[in-house]
Amino acid sequence: MLVFSWFLVTLLLVASSWAKEEVATTEEDTYRELSVGELLERANRDRTHDFNEPALIGGDIAIKLEADRNADPCTSRGCLWQKWSDGKVYIPYFIANHYSSREMSIIIRGLESFSSISCIRFRPYQDGDYEWLSIESRNGCYSYVGRQGGGQTVSLDRQGCLYHSTVQHELLHAMGFNHEQTRSDRDNHIRVYWENIIDGMAYNFDKINTLNQGTPYDYNSVMQYERYAFSKNNRPTMVPIPDSNVSFGQATQMSKNDIDRLNRLYDC
């Protein structure tokens, strides 16, 4: 009888553990299915600006000066990371120690994903490096656009930013890329419904002189936000043209065009 009771308790504990694991897996799968734009909006939704954090435009692009709000620093002053004599672009990074081992693995996977498709090589920070990416869990998900000089923050908040797509998205910002929906040729491919945008956030859709690198507009870019981005009334803020039924803004990783323009920008 004692053996049977022990077996029954063990069976109940195992079943409970399986149930918890299944719930956790289901929740993780639910979040994983969200597009990068949805993940970024969710993570930055309740972000409050303070003096320790940069102002953001476009939802997740950090700026230093208000003058940068309507300008692309990569076309106005240059922003490329240095290319070495072996043809590689080595970018030092430092990851803050407040991440768990699982969270670290997500970040590292995102960093390493650039090596197989480009000449970009992220490597750990070393003494003497004068410019690097400082990856930290700060208030939301954000990055500056292009090389800034010195240590520049890439914020990957532990609460909502640690997904492969969001890591790639913020790293592409750091490499010099803006959002797809701000491309100079946007109006040929996307109609913006300004009346549906959250009050005070219309600037997130301003067109700028982006680094398109001769690649076509890409609805599947990891830099393209989704149909209801920054909507105040659950109505679309963006609709593709001429075919409004085209799926867009659903990327969960870099597209072929994302990779092509990265390689063209850095002459890989």
Score class of each variant (00 low, 15 high):
W18I: 09
S5T: 10
S231D: 01
I57T: 07
E103I: 10
D157E: 01
H98T: 13
D206E: 11
S105Y: 08
Y266N: 01
G59C: 08
T252F: 06
N196Y: 04
G151V: 01
A174D: 12
D199H: 15
K20Y: 15
T10Y: 03
Y266H: 03
S100P: 09
I135F: 10
T25K: 14
D68H: 08
I197N: 07
D218R: 00
Y217I: 02
T153V: 12
S17K: 01
K232I: 10
T75I: 11
Y225G: 01
G58C: 09
G214R: 02
G150R: 06
A19I: 02
G149M: 04
Y99K: 03
R69M: 10
I241L: 09
D260P: 00
V14G: 02
A174Y: 05
R109N: 13
G128V: 11
L56P: 01
D46C: 06
K232H: 12
S105K: 08
M175T: 01
D218G: 01
C268R: 05
S137G: 14
E33K: 15
M223H: 06
R261Q: 10
Q250S: 14
G87D: 04
Y93P: 00
S134V: 09
I91L: 08
N188L: 12
D127V: 15
Q126G: 02
S165I: 04
V222F: 10
D157N: 09
N97P: 08
L11S: 15
A67T: 11
S113G: 10
G151F: 06
F7D: 04
W84G: 14
Y90H: 09
F94A: 12
A251W: 03
I120A: 12
R32H: 04
F4L: 13
L39C: 07
L11D: 07
S165E: 01
D157S: 07
L39A: 02
L40A: 12
L40K: 04
E195Y: 05
R158M: 14
A229G: 04
F205I: 00
V154G: 08
Y225K: 05
T25W: 12
S105G: 00
T25A: 14
T75V: 11
A71V: 15
G110Q: 07
Q181D: 12
L34A: 07
C161L: 13
Y217Q: 03
E103M: 14
I197E: 01
R123D: 06
G146Y: 01
V222P: 02
L80N: 12
C74T: 05
S165R: 03
I91G: 12
E66C: 14
D129K: 02
I91E: 13
W6I: 07
W6H: 05
N234A: 13
S100V: 05
H189F: 14
H164D: 13
R264H: 13
S165Q: 07
